[in-house]
């Protein structure tokens, strides 16, 4: 369309685009709010679901083991017998649901550096304060709100298996 358009049409479209860019800049804080669901941090947790609903643990598991989506197993290991390559940079996800509440898991996924600024855990639900994000990922969180809830639901389901002595 742009290729075949006349010179004046192209200029007009260019002007419109600049105007739009200006508008976007002016509305930047609102634009962020439109992309990310609002949430409240209480202590070391985000108690409320980002979507208002409970996530789906089966979908969450699929995200966790997906090396393009969740990327979790690059650094973590866990109870995933079928997954050959699991990292050991970060703690095992085994028993995560026994160690943390859903709200605590949610904040650790959404923005872990709030709890420890030196952590290597990425912020999965943050789009500001980042450097040189590649164009394909700019303005997008690593996971969407629904995906965060699915992963929270799955991680919360990972309970520590009782040891022999603890069994009745």
């Amino acid at each position: 369309m742009r290729m075949t358009g006349s010179r004046s049409r192209r200029l007009k479209s260019l002007a419109r685009r600049w105007a739009l860019a200006g508008l976007c800049l002016a509305l930047a804080p609102c634009a962020h709010a439109a992309v990310l669901a609002p949430f409240e941090v209480a202590g070391d947790a985000i108690p409320q679901s980002l979507t208002g609903d409970k996530g789906d643990p089966a979908r969450g598991r699929a995200i966790v083991v997906d090396r393009q989506k969740g990327l979790c197993l690059l650094c973590h290991s866990g109870p995933f017998a079928e997954q050959r390559f699991q990292g050991d940079i970060a703690p095992s996800l085994e028993g995560a649901g026994s160690r943390w509440s859903e709200g605590q898991l949610r904040l650790r996924l959404v923005d872990a550096p709030r709890l420890n600024r030196d952590t290597s855990m990425p912020s999965y639900y943050r789009i500001d304060g980042l450097n040189r994000v590649a164009p394909a990922f700019k303005g997008k969180p690593v996971l969407e709100a629904q995906q965060i809830e699915d992963v929270v639901a799955f991680l919360a389901s990972l309970r520590e298996t009782p040891t022999a002595q603890e069994k009745p």
Partner: peptide, 16 residues
Amino acid sequence: RLGQLNFSCAHCHEDN
């Protein structure tokens, strides 16, 4: 720190 995943070179190559 760089990129959407917010890692520095040092995060991997010095800390890990």
